[in-house]
Design a protein around this nucleic acid. Structure first.
Lengths: 108, 108
DNA sequence: ATAGTAAGTTACATAAAGTAAGTTAAATAC
DNA sequence: GTATTTAACTTACTTTATGTAACTTACTAT
């Protein structure tokens, strides 16, 4: 047996979540529509990687990018239905974190 | 605002899950105790990275490594209680995958 | 003796992420 | 009206993570 035997849908889902920052970006957008710099300062991601992630998430249909023709132009990011459907996943992780994670310096 | 304002426990939890392969390794071990090569061939991970991940998960208290003094020696990996406590997370992801993921070549 | 298996490790190559400076366009600030 | 600031990125470069393939060690089977 050299071929993986994992459900391809599950594999795809977990490959999304296991990309660094993706979970945090979606978690952050669960709070509602936000602008680039808001997301960036909220989660402490670099502009370059946030830009990558947002493009990727948009392309995957999880995030919507809206250009508001204000002056100057404003760009708003929000979750699509598909994006919002990940809420139970993030909430389950949140609960697990509260139950099992301890924050101290001596343990990584 | 330049500092992140995310709950540190949540951040820690999601940093575990957003490390490539970690979710799949735990998911795989939900099926019960397994040996190195079993995990490797089941999920299609390289020996090097699996070795890294198992050490890491052991150090985080999620995975237990048992040396069975058979001849030749057998090494078994299994989840600790803490590791098994991630089951709801993985199951939620699994359900989401069934509901929302489509597997085809035209979409990434 | 020779080959095979389990559980890794090592050396090297490629890809992803981080850092910091630069870009564009419009909006104040002086 | 020139100079600075802000938003939303992009570019160039460095560091870290991951992948690939060959090697190791200890035992077993042929």
């Amino acid at each position: 047996m050299t071929q993986p035997n994992i459900c391809p849908k599950f594999e795809k889902a977990i490959s999304i979540l296991s990309q660094r920052w993706t979970g945090l970006v979606i978690y952050q957008l669960l709070n509602g529509t936000q602008r680039f710099n808001e997301i960036q300062s909220a989660i402490g991601i670099s502009g370059k990687v946030l830009s990558d992630r947002l493009k990727d998430l948009e392309q995957k249909g999880l995030v919507k990018r809206d250009v508001i023709p204000d002056t100057p132009v404003v760009i708003e990011y929000s979750l699509t239905d598909k994006g919002r459907s990940m809420e139970p996943i993030l909430k389950t992780i949140e609960q697990w974190a509260l139950d099992w994670m301890q924050v101290d310096e001596t343990q990584q």
